[in-house]
Amino acid sequence: MNDGTQAVEQALSESSTPKPATETKHVKILNRDVNVFYGEKHALKHVDLDIYEHEVTALIGPSGCGKSTFLRCLNRMNDVIDSCRVAGTIEIDQTDIYTSGLDVVQLRARVGMVFQKPNPFPKSIFDNVAYGPRIHGTAQNKSEVEEIVRTSLERAGLWKEVHDRLDQPGTGLSGGQQQRLCIARAIAVNPEVILMDEPCSALDPIATAKIEELIDELRENYTIVIVTHSMQQAARVSQRTAFFHLGDLVEVDQTDSMFTNPKDSRTQGYITGRFG
């Protein structure tokens, strides 16, 4: 039953980037006693979690453990669901994002999101990326929009593949390209944090590898929180891992120590493949 751990250890040893020391890190998102209720159901219980700047934080755990729910709290996407109620404190750069005066539109411009299934709009590749800058009015004229689209696509590693067909529909790209287009679309708004909800679960291994490489590059400029089902993926891309189970945050630690030396028996059970 140790196959899982071995694969993870291998992934850890393959991970090329050196893990920076966390003591000097700035806490980007501070969560204290976060609770989420869907109607009567207590979906997320008393979560205290610090997310550090310029790090990739992976949220892992079995299905229904609340990791996606937690992710969607960070840009208030849960507001869309009527029966959902969020309690507790979530601060980004010392600002509570659930205070009444906060503009959700501005919050979501600061905290971008990439979804499980690639969801490009039924528009051209160019218009997909230009969507955010246009609605936020960040670009003053056409050439600025073009510049943003170009840099966003470059950062998402898609420019070389699509630069000669920007006017073609984004839905015509392959699954992996679509997901990178969605990442470019999120980058174009120039966010500080990017949330990724199982961004590779609909992709083949080669496209997954490209996205993971991209995530590692994006870490320099952005703070990334990623939900993943694959422990190997968590080991490969993240510096910090949080394990959720049945709505509880069981354990959070640096990724390499979490996978080599889990403190909680449930964490150990999950990462060695005994359940989940």
């Binding site: 840009n75 996407m77 959700v104 979501r108 709009f121």
Partner: peptide, 27 residues
Amino acid sequence: VPQSLRDGSYGLGATKSETIRSVVVPA
């Protein structure tokens, strides 16, 4: 029109009317 498109637009900070005008109706 799939909910994922609306989510994608909200996730970029679009308001409801912007989402309807620029994403839902064109789709």
